[in-house]
Amino acid sequence: MDVKEKELVARVLAGDSTAFEPLVLPYRRTLFGLAYKMTGNREDALEVSQETLLRAFRYLGKCDLERGFRNWLLQILVNAARDFGGKRGREAGRAGDSFLDSAVSDAPRPEEAHDRGEIRGRVLEAMSVLSSREREVFILRDLEEKSIKETVEITKSSAISVRVNLSRARGKLRIRLAELGLALTENAR
């Protein structure tokens, strides 16, 4: 954590709540983007990222200043997304593992996916086959390019678990994308 962040954290903890926004502002897009990839739609992403900010403010005193604010924030986001996914799943009367399913159920069919935005929608839909753990690991490691160590820290799981879930996620995605007609290899470009 840099000096500026430490100062901002100290100010917030001292009761200066105006220091909270400059503290989280550099992660605004990261937060929302990650929440979007995890939930698959804008409304849910907004709810998850709002909850993340709320928890970050409330539990700021527990942040380990030596380990870094960014990963701590992402850890909260992952937990918030898990909780949200569980809640969604319970509300829908399902296992609660893949709330992405409902988010993309009204997306257009593969043959209608003309532009890149729709391809992105297909990719997000393909990600709905992943379990919450697989999705988290895949997003953090492959899309956000976090190291295994960082992914372990953020998801609070073991390195073996991260590797296994990552491997499964890649395999499942490849199969699902092929089913959707999106191989995403050189030939598919």
């Binding site: 605004r28 897009r29 929302f32 983007g33 804008r42 907004l46 890149r116 492959d142 470009r189």
Partner: peptide, 13 residues
């Protein structure tokens, strides 16, 4: 390719 597709996402508050 996955990253390429998803990085175009301009979702933000």
């Amino acid at each position: 390719r996955m990253k390429d597709v998803l990085s175009e996402q301009k979702e933000d508050f």
